[in-house]
Simulated scan of single mutants.
Amino acid sequence: MISLQNVSKTFEVGKKKVEALKDVSVEINKGEIFGVIGFSGAGKSTLIRCVNLLERPTSGKVIIDGTDILTLNKKDLQKVRQKIGMIFQGYNLLKTATVYQNIAIPLRLEGVPAAEIRERVKKYLEIVGLADKAKSYPGELSGGQRQRVAIARALAHEPEVLLSDEATSALDPTTTEQILELLLTINKELGITIFLITHELDVIQRICDRVAVMEQGRIVEQGKVVDVFTKPEHPRTKSFVRNKDVFHVPEAIKQQLEKSGKLVALTFLGESSKDPFLATIAKKFDILPSIIAGGIDQLKDQSVGNLLVHLKGTEPEIQKAISYLQAEEVLVEEVSNQ
């Protein structure tokens, strides 16, 4: 549905040229939630603003439904933009307008009939759970409620694509979870394609189907969330993703454990996270497994379990246990020499 092909963007700051995007290519399928993650300055905001040409690429193609919108005239481009809604970190609401007016005014400017405006405002306020706030002003609402108004405003244009520019980064964890649940509902029930950018791994894990990782204006890794999450390849991706370092085992303890066996990081996907693999290998092989640390992460469609385990025993028996786990599709990373 959306294809960014070899997109580059250069800004001129004084006499200096700054390359915000460098030959970026991304494909976003109809109906999916695609996320881009990166630290500040990676080029995420510039990239997402290229989709609706709020930022015009220096080079490359921006293809939506088979049309390179960079080739369109102003009138035709406006028609395409009407199919693309956008929500921002700062909400961008009119402070002196009511919730109803914040949603209705843009529709009125588009020439939508008054009766239809009333229907749309009512419909989308109900969808975002704010049907009773139509007469309120933004200053009377919480941050999460203001973001819901912004989402309703974007949905009122009945877009095919929703762009989310760090929409949850200013919210507390509970409110963030509520907004993410709302985005999942919008994607599932309205069939709207969502393209979001964030610096928060939890957002990617929670709702995205696929993800791209950005660093210094480039895409350094991309793929299905479960693949990128469990088998990161690029150093920048590894800095985001949970790995053995998150367990923070003191060096003295690690060295002591390594004297009688091996430390391994285990990753269990989906249903395998429920299987008693450690009890099984303790029975099948002459080893004693001990859990040092661990946790479970919930992705959009499945759970991922992470364990740091000490395998006590001889090297041959430990290797047999590791081979068994790998045959059962448990991801195993030996960390005893780290």
Rank of each mutant, 00 (worst) to 15 (best):
I117Q: 00
E177G: 13
I186H: 12
Q147S: 15
A20Y: 11
K83R: 14
L331G: 00
K15E: 14
I48D: 14
L4K: 05
L269I: 15
P57R: 10
K224H: 07
I197D: 11
R118V: 07
L162F: 07
A115R: 09
I197N: 04
I117T: 13
V128D: 08
E317I: 06
V211Y: 01
S303Q: 14
A167I: 14
G129Q: 01
K74M: 07
A293N: 14
E221L: 06
G90R: 15
V112H: 03
R49C: 13
V228R: 09
I87R: 07
R206T: 14
R153Y: 06
D275R: 06
I194S: 09
G143Y: 12
K238H: 04
Q216R: 15
L184W: 00
G85F: 00
I28C: 09
K79S: 13
L190Q: 09
T174C: 00
S142D: 09
E233A: 12
V213L: 01
H310I: 09
R210M: 01
K74Y: 12
L47A: 01
L70E: 06
E19Q: 14
L308I: 05
E271Q: 13
N102V: 02
M1C: 08
V213Y: 13
V24W: 03
Y91C: 06
D209M: 01
G90L: 10
K259S: 08
Y91D: 07
I292F: 10
A104G: 02
T237H: 04
I84K: 07
V330D: 03
T175M: 09
D245M: 06
P173I: 03
L53C: 01
A252T: 15
I186D: 11
C50N: 14
I84F: 12
E177N: 15
